[in-house]
Amino acid sequence: MQPVPTALDDIRARLTQAAALAGRPADAVALIAVSKTRTVDEIEPLLVAGHRLFGENRVQEAAAKWPALRERYPDTQVHLIGQLQSNKADEAVALADAIHAVDRPSLVTALARAMDRAGRRPACFVQVNIGDEAQKGGVAIADLPALLKEAGAADLPVIGLMCLPPAAVEPAPYFALLARLARDHGLAGLSMGMSDDFETAAMLGATHVRVGSALFGARERPAA
């Protein structure tokens, strides 16, 4: 695995090229460095290299790492990209600059109330279960209009859609479908694409890609 700053330069170059192939400007796609399970020592080389956008799965883990890091790098943004429990809404709103996995009415309600209490409104993406997979989170495509209507009524700042395509299949049709759904609902944001497919996502309209292992290397597996 190449050093993290070198990997960052490589991924930025690949994103720029992919965007250019689709006639998009280089800054059209934001790179979220997925730092879940990564230590401060692993994260800091990216911060030193100038990267400022990171993704975390769990509120508790993010809260343990980022307040201290943000004291040294105050312009850093943290996006919560994993499934979120409604009872963590207050903590999520206090910590996050964006929340990528809004997927059900109860979470819409919890986040809206938390935002009202906190006086801050992180941007939100609605997660769509784009492959209709029972084991994954996300609102069913058929239920998306109703959830977006509820989010609008609650004044939740939804800026786009997010998806995780099925594994081990060509992701392009799923990315294209998410892009069409976003257009149909007047949403500009598309959080899609990870380490194995972020270039495809960038060519199909992603505004945010979530890249972890391609930046940091594979996570160590616990010993058996």
Rank of each mutant, 00 (worst) to 15 (best):
P5N: 15
I141E: 11
G189Y: 11
M192V: 02
H208D: 09
F125D: 00
A13T: 15
E220Y: 01
D197K: 08
A140F: 02
D97R: 08
S86C: 08
C124E: 13
L47E: 12
V102Q: 07
P222C: 14
T39C: 04
L47N: 11
N129D: 12
A28D: 03
E150F: 03
D97I: 06
A167H: 08
M194G: 05
R58V: 09
F216Q: 04
A19L: 14
L15W: 05
V139H: 10
G82Q: 07
L204P: 03
L204G: 00
T109H: 14
S106W: 04
G82Y: 15
L177P: 01
S213D: 06
K88Y: 13
G119N: 08
L31M: 06
T207M: 03
T16C: 03
A18Q: 02
R120P: 04
A146F: 05
E56A: 07
A168L: 12
A18N: 04
V48K: 13
V128L: 07
A26G: 00
V78A: 03
P3I: 13
M162C: 11
V102C: 07
R180W: 07
G189L: 14
V40H: 04
A28L: 01
R117Y: 02
D27L: 01
A101I: 09
R183A: 15
V139R: 07
L21V: 12
A146S: 09
D103A: 15
Y174L: 03
E220L: 05
A179P: 01
Y73K: 00
R121Q: 05
V93S: 08
L164S: 07
Y73H: 12
Q85K: 13
D197L: 11
A151C: 01
E61C: 10
Q77N: 13
G186E: 06
P67L: 12
H185T: 10
V78E: 05
L15R: 10
D27A: 13
D97Q: 07
D27E: 13
I130Y: 07
F125Q: 01
L46A: 02
K36W: 06
A206N: 00
A98W: 06
A153I: 00
Q77E: 10
V40E: 15
V158K: 10
A7F: 10
I141D: 02
V128Q: 05
N129F: 14
L69S: 10
R70C: 08
Y174D: 02
D9N: 13
L144V: 08
V34W: 05
L215G: 02
G50Y: 01
P74T: 05
E199V: 10
I130H: 02
E61H: 10
